[in-house]
Simulated scan of single mutants.
Amino acid sequence: MTATLPVSTATADLPAFSTYVTERGPVLLRTARSMTPNPADAEDLLQTALTKTYLAWDRIEDPRALDGYVRRALLNTRTSEWRRRRVDEYAAGDELPEPEPEAAVDPAERQAMRDAMWRAVLRLPDRQRAMVVLRYYEDLSEVQTAEVLGVSVGTVKSAVSRALAKLRADAGLGELTEAA
């Protein structure tokens, strides 16, 4: 008994399909890139959608509907991949792994860090200090800080950025993040 390979039932017009891909490929690739963060994933997504389009080529009666068909294939394929990845990311089994215990921070070290940071904030120019205190100590938004100080939001953004750069450069602080 000999095994036979399945024969494809697609009877698409290869030259017409090739012409379509050559003409519309760049536009369709841009569409695929808008759906994925990685350009390589976008190329894979487009390849899969074009494969589906090729298999349905003879059933698409209106040539003006081709772009819509490919876009729908892109969207459906992307959604299927997203769902599959999302399901794959869930932990399997009845028990979840225990999180690693966090190292206990010495309260004296924490207080020393706060004191050093406050001393550095006090060395900032008055305007920058006011903005940093409002933004990070009082937890006001950029818009709220601008309203309190009577300046534009852009002024708050640039002054806080400069202040954080000065704080980062302060040798006694080490690394300081935006979330200060």
Rank of each mutant, 00 (worst) to 15 (best):
A120Y: 09
A112Q: 13
V121Y: 09
R123Y: 08
P125M: 03
R123K: 08
A120P: 01
A104E: 14
E98H: 04
W118F: 09
V133I: 15
P125T: 03
M131D: 01
M131Y: 15
L124W: 07
M113I: 02
A104V: 11
A103G: 00
V133K: 14
A112D: 02
P97D: 03
V121Q: 02
A103I: 12
E98F: 12
V105L: 14
D106W: 01
E100I: 09
L122T: 06
P107T: 08
Q111Y: 00
P125S: 07
R110D: 12
V121E: 00
R119D: 06
M117Y: 10
R129G: 06
V132N: 02
P97M: 08
P99R: 14
V105I: 15
P99A: 10
A104C: 02
M113K: 10
A103T: 07
P99V: 14
P97S: 05
A130R: 15
V132C: 09
Q111W: 13
A108V: 15
P107H: 04
E109S: 12
V132R: 01
V121R: 05
A116W: 07
E100S: 11
R110W: 07
L96G: 07
L124F: 09
A116H: 04
R123T: 04
R123F: 06
L96F: 13
P101I: 14
Q111I: 13
A108G: 05
A112P: 02
R123E: 13
A104W: 10
P107C: 14
A108W: 09
L124Q: 02
E109K: 02
M131G: 00
R129N: 03
P101C: 08
L96P: 06
A112G: 06
R127E: 14
E100Y: 01
R114I: 06
E109F: 00
D126H: 12
D126N: 09
L96N: 02
R110F: 00
D106G: 03
R123M: 01
P125R: 08
L96T: 13
V132A: 01
R114Q: 07
L124Y: 03
W118R: 08
A108L: 15
L122E: 15
A130F: 08
Q128H: 11
R110I: 01
P107R: 11
V133E: 10
V105M: 08
D115F: 08
R127N: 06
D115Q: 07
V132D: 01
E98Y: 10
L122C: 11
L122Y: 07
A112W: 13
E109D: 15
M117H: 02
R114G: 04
D115T: 12
D126Y: 11
A130M: 11
R123V: 01
A120F: 10
W118E: 03
R129P: 04
M113T: 03
V133C: 04
A120I: 06
M113Q: 08
R127L: 05
E109V: 04
E109W: 04
A108M: 12
P99L: 14
R123N: 09
A116D: 02
M131W: 14
A120R: 04
D115N: 00
W118D: 05
V133R: 14
V132H: 10
R110G: 00
D106N: 13
V105K: 08
V132P: 07
A116V: 01
A108K: 03
R114A: 00
V132L: 14
E109Y: 00
V132G: 03
D106V: 01
V132W: 11
W118M: 13
D126L: 12
V133L: 10
E98S: 12
Q111V: 10
P101T: 13
